[in-house]
Design a binder for these strands. Structure first.
Length: 458
RNA sequence: GGCCCCUUCGUCUAGUGGCCCAGGACGUCGGGUUCUCAGCUCGAAGACAGGGGUUCGACUCCCCUAGGGGCUACCA
């Protein structure tokens, strides 16, 4: 049987790290098994669902490189759920509930007491006139519900802890547990890979499968992603959406690699492309321990993936990123940008680092993280004019020539080379850290170099 | 509270009864290369939650305790 999996986000927010990882695992499994990957938007919560979020989730999935073979939106399928719920009602497997919010509130935590099950047909008829009923599934109080999970083995729940839960709300829309099962059956899903927080929903869903007379698929509940404090990763831990990391300049390759590494292993390999991940992915390599989000690892992976990019494609990524950051004037001279990236490539962790570490290539108004002390400035003022003359005479402006000339200059004047080179670095960049000074000067060009040194003399 | 899941270095993980006085990667710390950094390179510290069993032998199997997490809605 052909593998059919689905990723079913609800469009009530941006694509979350944990959700994205669930999508990725489903996708990797589908691609590895040459199966079908379905994207299903679970927008039955009319209050909280927004088209804007749906668009953003789709955008982020595309950015990650995740594509889908079939697409569904639950709001397009409302009549199906309604029809099936009504069938269950007719078959006596479900019943109408007329309870108000207030009545239910009093029952909180105790489980529904089936008061509406005892209603006579006449009573129901009267109630129907004043309000729409919800539909509850009849769940036996005796016995237990078992199902097996690929990662966790046999799981068993006592039926008396499962109340007669609502499957169709009074407004005619399905609840999550119901629409999921109806769709998973309808879409012939073979494997459900989802977060561990759904384990306790599963017995409820099993009861729906039973009521519908269908055998459930294989469940694979993957562990959650936690914050540093080991609580479920949430807003208070900082950035939690894929979009935020994208905007911080992380490469999608790095993000995918990072997500894949959390909760799974691939022959001890760390740096992996999408293709390699597909090849190495296996349900057997999934872990059942929750993973703590560690941005240090993401940084490392991002740096590695940047290093592996060709200069051309890195430039393209940078152009796109800089434009998004409203710095399009940095991208006008593509050749120059490429040369800058050539010396920055091994030093940046994210695309944003280009801005942080390379602003002096593009603007005279660059950030200064260090100033030269007054005392040293005086000393430099007496040395620099001569250097300017020398630099002005350099015909072939490349790092080798520059290094030769400047080193000769240092020797002749008996300068402390560390001190002098570092001073030059600060004068031309405002930074205490840059690529090799001579390469930096080469890329920066004669004009800017000389001007900045002149400026630095004052 | 009830039900359920999880427990190997700080972090992600390898390990499915002897190959493990526990391997890899990130991070950390030291050394080397060097104009600073990145890189490269050499090296170091660092874990089987605790307690009982089972077994000739437990990181691996069972039980208990502790800790962490999740669910407990006419949200998904």
């Amino acid at each position: 049987m052909r593998v059919r999996v689905r990723f079913a986000p609800s469009p009530t927010g941006y694509l979350h790290i944990g959700t994205a990882r669930t999508a990725l695992f489903n996708w990797l499994f589908a691609r590895k098994e040459q199966g079908i990957f379905i994207l299903r938007i679970e927008d039955t919560d009319l209050e909280r669902s927004k088209r804007e979020f749906e668009a953003s989730i789709i955008d982020d999935l595309k950015w990650l490189g995740i594509d889908w073979d079939e697409f569904y939106r639950q709001s397009d399928r409302l009549n199906i759920y309604k029809e099936i719920a009504e069938r269950l009602l007719l078959e006596g497997k479900a019943y109408e509930c007329f309870c108000t919010k207030e009545e239910l509130e009093k029952l909180r935590g105790k489980g529904y007491d089936r008061r509406c099950l005892k209603l006579s047909e006449a009573e129901k008829e009267i109630l129907r006139r004043e309000r729409k009923p919800a539909i509850r599934l009849y769940v036996p109080k005796e016995g237990e519900t078992r199902f097996s999970d690929y990662l966790h083995g046999e799981l068993c729940f006592q039926n008396n802890v499962i109340e007669d839960f609502v499957i169709l709300k009074s407004d005619g829309t399905p609840t999550y547990n119901f629409s999921v099962v109806v769709d998973d059956i309808d879409m012939r899903i073979t494997h459900i890979i989802r977060g561990e927080d759904h384990i306790s929903n599963t017995p409820k869903q099993i009861h729906i499968y039973k009521a519908l007379g269908i055998a459930p698929p294989i469940f694979i509940h993957i562990p959650m992603i936690l914050g540093q404090d080991k609580a479920k990763l949430s807003k208070r831990h900082g950035a939690t959406s894929i979009g935020e990391y994208r905007s911080m300049g992380y490469l999608s390759e790095a993000m995918v690699n990072f997500l894949a590494l959390m909760g799974a292993s691939y022959n001890d390999k760390q740096i992996l492309s999408l293709e390699e991940l597909i090849n190495l992915f296996s349900l057997e390599n999934l872990s059942k321990n929750p993973a703590i989000f560690d941005i240090k690892k993401l940084d490392f992976l991002s740096q590695e993936h940047i290093r592996r990019k060709s200069l051309e494609s890195l430039t393209q990524l940078a152009i796109q990123f800089l434009k998004e950051k409203k710095l399009e004037y940095w991208t006008i001279d593509t050749i120059y940008l490429t040369r800058v990236l050539g010396i920055l490539q091994t030093r940046i962790k994210t695309l944003k680092d280009i801005i942080l570490m390379g602003d002096y290539f593009f603007t005279e108004d660059f950030s200064k993280d260090i100033e030269i002390p007054i005392e040293e400035k005086k000393r430099l003022s007496s040395i620099l004019p001569e250097l300017v003359d020398i630099l002005n005479k350099v015909e072939d402006w490349n790092s080798t020539n520059l290094e030769n000339r400047i080193r000769i200059f240092i020797t002749e004047r008996a300068l402390d080379s560390r001190w002098f080179l570092q001073s030059l670095r600060i004068i031309i960049s405002g930074k205490k850290v840059t690529p090799s000074l001579f390469e930096t000067l080469e890329v920066l060009g004669k004009e800017k170099t000389v001007n900045r040194i002149k400026k630095g003399m004052n």
